[in-house]
Design a protein around this nucleic acid. Sequence first.
DNA 1: CTGAAAGCGCTTACAG
DNA 2: CTGAAAGCGCTTACAG
Lengths: 356, 356
Amino acid sequence: MAAASRILRGDTNEFSVATCDRVLAAASSLGWRRNLLVRGVQTGRTQTIGVVVPPYDSFWVGLLSGVNSGLARADYLPINVWPGDTDNMPYFESDEEEGVRLMNRLLDRRVDGLILWPPFALAYAKHVAELHDQTVPVVVIDYHADALRSDTVATNETQAMRTVAEHLLALGHRRFGYIGCRETSAQTWALERRRGFEIALDGVPGVSYRRCKLNRRGSNGLDVATRLLQGGSAPTAVVAATDHEAVLIYQAAAALGMKIPDDVSVVGFADLDFAAGMIPPLTTVRQRASELGRQAASLILGRLDGSIAGSSRHDVRVDAELVQRRSTAPPRSDQPRQRRAANSSRIRRQRRSSSE
Amino acid sequence: MAAASRILRGDTNEFSVATCDRVLAAASSLGWRRNLLVRGVQTGRTQTIGVVVPPYDSFWVGLLSGVNSGLARADYLPINVWPGDTDNMPYFESDEEEGVRLMNRLLDRRVDGLILWPPFALAYAKHVAELHDQTVPVVVIDYHADALRSDTVATNETQAMRTVAEHLLALGHRRFGYIGCRETSAQTWALERRRGFEIALDGVPGVSYRRCKLNRRGSNGLDVATRLLQGGSAPTAVVAATDHEAVLIYQAAAALGMKIPDDVSVVGFADLDFAAGMIPPLTTVRQRASELGRQAASLILGRLDGSIAGSSRHDVRVDAELVQRRSTAPPRSDQPRQRRAANSSRIRRQRRSSSE
DNA sequence: CTGAAAGCGCTTACAG
DNA sequence: CTGAAAGCGCTTACAG
């Protein structure tokens, strides 16, 4: 019995070949299959990680894929759940109750660790003892806050935005616009990203900069994008917080009769699945989504096997790379390209440009 | 002990209030949490479903979301895994070995049922005893084959394509093109979808029809799309197997200097997340992805609780609805709009048009 | 190298 | 209504 148990788990070289064969043959003829539940009860390890990350877009799917393959190498399985429906993503911060229920479902099944998407990390810790006690290792994605004790994995926003700024400056742009997504307190990446761009521009002579962002529900996107492109000091290059906002700039430009990149250059962020298919193909920052996922898996696995020890937090930052496609070009050097001067009064309250 | 077990599971009304309070108080002060692993060992039910479906695009994500919420209502949890990396989706049919390993990992953890993406369903059954014996209920998504004994859930392709054909015919189109994705033997939906369109066109007087499809790796998409739009009998309306192929038509049209919908109308399929953001916004068929997922969850749950019994296969078909946006309009009634007659020789071998 | 024994944290009949 | 007993399918020391 004990021998069989060990042989079936692979300890074949501690036993005689005959015994091994006998056990293995019996097992396969009986259609035996190991029961990881029992092992979980005995050892306290289920080789299972709860992943509370909604697959909002292809970035998150890529991340999930990385988590998947990172865990697979150690024979771990992810259990991916999230509160709410994808239909009203990403507006489910309020579903705290459902989220806590979800965490409990995961913990009832004795997941060995947890990978969490930012809005949930802090909220759940208040309600779920295991999180607060740090009984179960937790990795949070794309989030940074001093109050957080869990390990984190995120894109190196500052580095990424510097490559964007350098690219546009090298093309000759000096009048910049930035269109941000909503910035909730959970979206520290959004703040870091924008600040990263602003820092990279800081001190460069002759630069003007104008920024806008969507409202909380993101419902005013086209308005905001349209206004950004108009007026006397309109930018020659617009940087978007993500490829989603870059789409808004494309739409606004089309409505205004402006051509990309002739009239305005556009840079996205994420390199989502549709970015290469846009017309023109979008220049954007490729986040290494699956690498982020693999890093998250490694952190969790490291905490579990003890190779990462100590109570100090580990913050992994992954660099991202600019993908130059057709949406960026040098600014027009000829006449100021404004077509709708009549509308310029609407943007008078914007930050003054140094180039007019 | 037995009483505590029952009370903790919610049988509070069979016991005195005092006992219940005592048990509940003790449980919470001890930080007790139910252990579903043990219950799984005892009852043979883990309340866990293996979902082998790669989140290839927002359709599959929506489906996964539906599975999630469908299972959640019964306090079941999905374990979503897939072979390979998202980076080289959807070209992982060949990963049979890794897929089988994945199935075994799932079964070792005693999932109660399985939801499978088409290419895997048949391949795995050969290697995994539980699938072949039908010990574990299985639902296959978007697949149809007589050899298959599992229940299935799919979009009603025929109905969906009829609404597409009716829409275009009502606008006045008679010259049609169809751009298909690759059609592997696992993609029965692709065949049904195309046949659905062809059937809807069948017998309508004065109709011409020309079709093309991508190669197995999908690498010749732009070429194929470009050729479809050119030549003497070029279509005034193109229907795409999915929104992905519609993007190719947009790109080809842009390269040829053709305007959508003025020069050619385009209809997609799926209503993926980027479809509404395309320029112009894409008319497409909205597949009810999360409804498909919920139906899959219901089928599994029904098999498990016995409300769906018998060995006959259940095939659920979900209707889809046309979303009219700006990429379709009546055909130009004036001059034939061909701009590159010089290229027309390249498409001579195509099916002849009845309108020239 | 190989067996018999206890135990993981419950659940399920079965007595009181 | 409430306890003592057996057992789920293993794993883990511990003897032979």
